[in-house]
């Protein structure tokens, strides 16, 4: 399970590869960057293992990108490998954001800066909506899935039902509807 390549990859190399992904990826499309670097360039995983790791990353809580870093880093060099991979993934963005944060706190009351920030925030909503529709179109066209999408949206978006409540009520129900051997309605 854990032996991916004949000679062990150095921790420095793991950090560098993940930092490179961390510094070049923008706007939530990190999976594509990960595939290019890990499967095509470094050849640390084949396509099947990449998909298997992605599947785990998406099912467990946490960001897909950091979960992928944990899994691949662990397979390469155990706990230390997982640690440097996550660090490499997060650190570049965190440093840049810290700089942006300083500027934000200092300048946000400037009316001109406030206008820029309003435009930036308005654009971010469009980006988030586009990503949601791109990921979710399959769910939006199946009646059964769509009913769960709408149920969660109404409960969380309009009635502020806690996410924890959703995860112990609606989520198990949704999984149950897709249980092995269930009638494939609306698929």
């Amino acid at each position: 399970m854990s032996e991916l390549s004949a000679s062990p990859v150095s921790l420095g190399r793991i950090f560098r590869v993940f930092a490179q992904i961390g510094v070049t990826s923008f706007g939530g499309g990190i999976v594509a960057y990960l595939r290019r670097a890990l499967v095509e360039k470094e050849k640390w995983l084949d396509e099947d293992r990449f998909m298997a790791a992605l599947e785990i990353s998406q099912t467990l809580p946490g960001l897909n990108s950091t979960n992928m870093s944990v899994i691949v880093g662990r397979q390469l060099r155990g706990a230390a490998g997982a640690f440097v991979a996550v660090l490499g993934m997060i650190l570049p963005g965190a440093v840049i954001l810290t700089g942006l944060g300083f500027a934000y706190v200092a300048l946000r009351h400037d009316p001109k800066v406030a206008l820029i920030l309003t435009g930036v925030a308005a654009a971010a909503v469009g980006l988030l909506l586009q990503v949601t529709l791109k990921i979710g179109w399959k769910q939006l066209v199946r009646p059964l899935d769509l009913s769960f999408v709408l149920l969660v949206f109404v409960l969380v978006g309009l009635f502020h039902v806690s996410l924890l409540v959703i995860l112990v009520t609606v989520a198990p129900l949704a999984v149950w509807m897709h249980r092995p051997g269930a009638k494939k309605e609306g698929l």
Binding site: L128, L144, V149, I166, V175
Partner: peptide
């Protein structure tokens, strides 16, 4: 597979609520 298929619409609903 059931977990993945079942969770997908829940996640999309949460993302829409985020929008």
């Amino acid at each position: 597979n059931a977990v993945q298929r079942g969770m997908a619409p829940v996640v999309v609903g949460l993302m829409l609520a985020g929008c």
